[in-house]
Design a binder for these strands. Structure first.
Lengths: 219, 219
DNA sequence: AAAATAATTTAGACAAACCTAAACTTTTAC
DNA sequence: GTAAAAGTTTAGGTTTGTCTAAATTATTTT
């Protein structure tokens, strides 16, 4: 059984490596986790001793198969709790992350099984991220970044890859949510921003930073 | 804000003092919390510095008003989660305690407000214990221990004062749950046990230990 | 390819929450 | 009312997870 701190490291390694494949640097982890690089080194030695990561000094870490299984389990719990908070307790998508971050560490197999059942075995969380199955499988949906669309092309928002309240509140304000119909009205080559129409009505200009974080289907 | 460990001490003091009034000894706490008396002394000094308890060396602790408020908040969270687990996730009453013990430490005012609302502002948890209000009030129901009933007298089970799985599973086996109609069939003076009929059908003999833990209304 | 810079690890400390062993109070027993 | 027993606290140590400062390794620059 892992401690909360260990679980947070494993989750961070998973996210930074984009699914557990690539190696992750100490500095990257220290930024994500808001701890000093020296503390990260310590913890990596510990996770390595537990065979949750492959760790080569000065050359970064990768999750082992076991580490990956653990990561997917935590992510499953996190995303199921997010669905619960939004669908059952009327949280908005910018309020769920911090609370789910705490609930994901509650230890009980039965709890997660029953929660999944209670929610009707959802496939996606409120940000459009896929929920791993009990067996640890990620069912990805084909999708592309809004930034990759050309003029006139359309898409339906299926996912946003940033859970920070500030970003989600920004999307609330411009009127973008999961399911919004977007269309590229114009390209501004100067800074790679796009003018986007939302649900066939108002249009806004989105910076390339934002365009990289919004994903659509049927492009 | 209190740590999980601090919260567990405050909860234990509340329970052992029977509501925060009486003073509680170091040994009693060490037994309840499964820690050594020396560790309890340490923590009491710490809680005292935070003004959550009145602590006089060698003479036990009591909760301060602030400590009592904190205790009731934790108990409120614990009992609301128990209701959730039983009513929404089909847990049985002997499975909820351990999980609720973890969930009670999640920090979010909004979460508890919304959970309370989602559950329909329940007044009692699955063991019949009252749920403190948001304002920190305990709405007790008039009740008496089964042990205090005389021959022929009846009552409806409204509460059981022991959340240990072993005890609750014992009640499951003899067929007693919240709402069961009990009647005293016979008194056995030798060991103060009683013969009790359950829901006007089968009858069982309950030891005085057990009789002290079951509470009834309309006696 | 050596020197400068950046990234990383080791060494030594600290706080929280626990422990054991020893010292100290309080209570109980005679 | 003193002595033994029981209960409690203090002193010093451990583990987990963090920190700063110093040492080490890798990378970049020239």
């Amino acid at each position: 059984m892992q401690s909360t701190a260990e679980e947070n490291y494993i989750k961070a390694i998973y996210k930074l490596s984009g699914g557990g494949a690539a190696a992750v640097s100490t500095t990257a982890l220290s930024e994500t986790l808001q701890t000093k690089p020296a503390s990260v080194s310590d913890m990596l030695r510990k996770l390595s001793a537990k065979d949750l990561v492959h760790y080569v000094k000065y050359h970064g870490v990768q999750l082992t198969d076991e580490g990956q299984r653990v990561a997917l389990k935590i992510i499953r719990k996190h995303r199921l709790w997010e669905v619960f908070l939004v669908q059952k307790l009327r949280f908005s998508w910018d309020e769920v992350h911090e609370v789910a971050e705490q609930m994901e560490h509650v230890k009980s197999e039965l709890l997660i099984q029953r929660l999944d059942e209670f929610l009707g075995h959802p496939r996606l969380d409120p940000h459009g991220d896929p929920i791993p199955t009990e067996a640890g499988e990620l069912r990805e949906v084909e999708q592309r970044a809004l930034a990759s669309l050309n003029i006139e092309q359309e898409g339906v928002v299926c996912r946003v890859k940033d859970s920070q309240p500030a970003f989600l509140q920004y999307l609330n304000r411009v009127g973008i949510q999961i399911g919004s119909q977007l269309q590229v009205v114009d390209k501004i080559p100067y800074d790679n921003s796009l003018e986007i129409s939302i649900d066939k009505s108002k249009s806004v200009i989105l910076s390339s930073d934002v365009l990289e974080k919004i994903f659509v289907i049927n492009p």
